[in-house]
């Protein structure tokens, strides 16, 4: 029996489903950490620095999501090497999660456009 299963990497293939929302979470965590660290130092003239960091993190997160999404269109890559139906199902799920996470990434980075860095709440 076991010879049939050598090609499948069940854990890795399963974890692939979770990459897109994990990117969203990592992006949020990075923005939060960046502000916390920037505001821990002397607080002057950090608006530009933070804007750049948010921009770079957001572009990086979106790039990762786009790569993940594009890979789902390449059969036999980025999905379990399994029967066609389950495989197509995995691809769709991964794609939908990438889209959902992408909108989440954009949405959570929007506040930077409207609020100053390190300002305390009134």
């Amino acid at each position: 029996m076991s010879a049939d299963f050598k090609g499948i990497r069940p854990l890795a293939d399963l974890l692939r489903l979770f990459i897109a929302p994990a990117i969203w979470l990592a992006h949020l965590g990075a923005l939060y950490a960046a502000e916390a660290l920037i505001c821990a130092g002397p607080q002057r003239g950090h608006d530009d620095k933070m804007s750049w960091i948010v921009f770079l993190f957001t572009v990086a997160a979106l790039m990762c999501l786009i790569i993940l999404a594009v890979r789902t269109f390449r059969p036999g890559d980025g999905v379990p090497r399994s029967s066609g139906q389950t495989s197509a199902w995995f691809r769709r799920i991964t794609l939908l999660l990438a889209v959902l996470s992408g909108s989440g990434v954009i949405w959570t980075s929007l506040p930077t456009a409207f609020l100053p860095v390190c300002s305390s709440a009134p």
Binding site: L31, Y32, C39, P111, V117, S119, A121
Partner: peptide, 8 residues
């Protein structure tokens, strides 16, 4: 800080 609150 207000910006962190806004992220969340």
């Amino acid at each position: 800080p207000a910006l962190s609150l806004s992220f969340f």
